[in-house]
């Protein structure tokens, strides 16, 4: 018996969301009184692996076969299923992102394990697995129960936080899963990385702006604000803004874009339509800045400033700069 967590990395370094999901899995392992095993795919150094112990992993398995360099959903699901079976996992944990969402449903089928995605809380019970998840596009939550002995959870980024809980005696075992040659026909032709940007779904703070900004040329102050707020912060936007091509598509949040749940969400010149709110209502704290005191966003916000963004944001940036310099 064990809890198994997929520890995702990017180019050999673990991401903050990985440490979060390891912390969360540790909590479940403690509830169940079993060990926590992390599964890693790809080239990650021993020194980097050891970081997983900081958040409670008792040991790790690592598959470094070259055929795993490209992310292929079925191949990854094959490899992780073999690892999870090897450690007799009864709970398997993912971060709710593009990788987890691809792999977890396949493992659910392979292992006949109930899968709860968009999980936002610690399980109410581990056996049977009973846990709270987001549903209806963030407008509600549901409490779901697994009808199977093995269950799979995928955790919404920032829902639990990173918790240090060092485990002693951590070691990494290399593991070579059996892969199918036929999958190699699925090939990456071209890759493009947007340097230095963090996916909006993983950001701790989001500075989001809408059509109220009137032109793509006015985003300088939004980017400045994001920079002032540090590396955990990035920019995003409402749908018309990305549809108009003012901002890239990956910044679009809302029901038909990214669903986000940062600690702090700034909504600047965004009206607060229900489809936009559906994607951001999981945010812990919302600040709305809008010229219209009747803008629906104020109903969803915790703090509001009624005012012109072109006046308020530069002043706010100055205040943030002063504040950050004193931290």
């Amino acid at each position: 018996m064990s809890v198994f967590v997929f520890a995702e990395h990017k180019g050999g370094s673990f991401k903050k969301s990985t440490f979060e999901v390891v912390s969360y899995a540790k909590k479940i392992a403690d509830m169940a009184g079993v060990e926590l095993v992390a599964g890693v795919i790809g080239k990650v150094s021993d020194a980097e692996m050891a970081q997983l112990a900081q958040y409670g992993a008792n040991r790790a398995m690592r598959d470094q076969q070259p055929d795993l360099e490209t992310f292929r959903t079925r191949t990854y699901a094959d490899a992780l299923t073999q690892m999870a079976e090897n450690v007799a996992a009864n709970v398997i944990v993912f971060s709710d992102n593009f990788m987890g969402r691809g792999i977890a449903p396949r493992m659910s089928v392979k292992l006949k394990a109930a899968l709860a995605t968009s999980v936002v809380d610690v399980p109410k019970s581990v056996s049977p697995m009973t846990v709270k998840r987001k549903s209806f596009s963030g407008k509600a939550f549901s409490i779901v129960k697994a009808n199977t002995p093995v269950s799979i959870l995928s955790l919404v980024p920032n829902a639990f936080g990173v918790v240090e809980k060092p485990a002693a005696g951590f070691a990494t075992t290399d593991f070579a899963s059996k892969l199918r040659a036929s999958d190699l026909a699925v090939q990456v032709e071209a890759a493009e990385t947007v340097a230095g940007t963090m996916p909006v779904s993983e950001a701790e703070i989001l500075v989001s702006a809408g059509r109220g900004l009137k032109s793509p040329d006015n985003w300088g102050m939004i980017e400045e604000m994001s920079q002032l707020l540090g590396p955990g912060c990035t920019t995003c936007c409402s749908r018309p803004v990305s549809d108009l091509g003012w901002r890239p598509h990956h910044e679009h949040v809302g029901q038909t874009g990214h669903v986000v749940a940062p600690n702090l969400y700034f909504a600047i010149g965004i009206s607060g339509a229900i489809q936009h709110l559906a994607g951001v209502s999981g945010s812990k704290v919302i600040v709305a800045i809008n010229t219209d005191p009747e803008a629906p966003f104020f109903k969803a916000a915790d703090y509001g400033i009624v005012g012109d963004a072109f006046e308020v944001v530069p002043k706010l940036n100055k205040a943030l700069k002063d504040f950050m310099s004193k931290q």
């Binding site: 549903s135 779901v144 129960k145 697994a146 915790d302």
Partner: peptide, 13 residues
């Protein structure tokens, strides 16, 4: 594999 036990609405702001 999975059953919904109950639903909750988010706490009102």
């Amino acid at each position: 594999l999975l059953t919904v036990e109950s639903y909750e609405l988010p706490p009102a702001k």
